[in-house]
Amino acid sequence: MTHAITVTINGKPYAHQVEPRLLLIHYLRDVVGLTGPHIGCETSICGACTVMVDGKAVKACTMFAVQADGRQILTIEGLATDGRYDPVQEAFWNEHALQCGFCTPGMILAAKQLLERNPNPTEEEIRHGLEGNLCRCTGYQHIVNAVRAAAARMGG
């Protein structure tokens, strides 16, 4: 038994029939073809699959696609508008906040949410806010620097 869902992803409407158990992350990656969000674990720890659902950062591996029916989804692919990077993306680039890049899409969206809620976070608040996103390459320091730089750029 499948269910009809309609979702708006990065501003575009989509309609699909999905199995109830289809995870949102597999829906985005395999059905819609948005492979920016990644899968790094199965226990909701690593955050590589982070996307925004109705403006809230969520782990797309811990949500069924049917739960997203009718909702607005933003993935990393939709973050740059009119070919211009989001200030968080730009800061990640400038500050060398990524190496292998696998955690980066999730990390950027988590950082974006963090800054939406706290435009001028302390280093401690940044580190706490990014606890749900693992990075094995950078040691986080450049990521923290990037979030601070983005905050400054966004006038926080």
Binding site: S44, T50, A57, V58, K59, Q113, G129, G132
Partner: peptide, 9 residues
């Protein structure tokens, strides 16, 4: 609890 994403949901 958990982390930001978990607390969101």
């Amino acid at each position: 609890i958990g982390d930001m994403q978990v607390r969101n949901v």
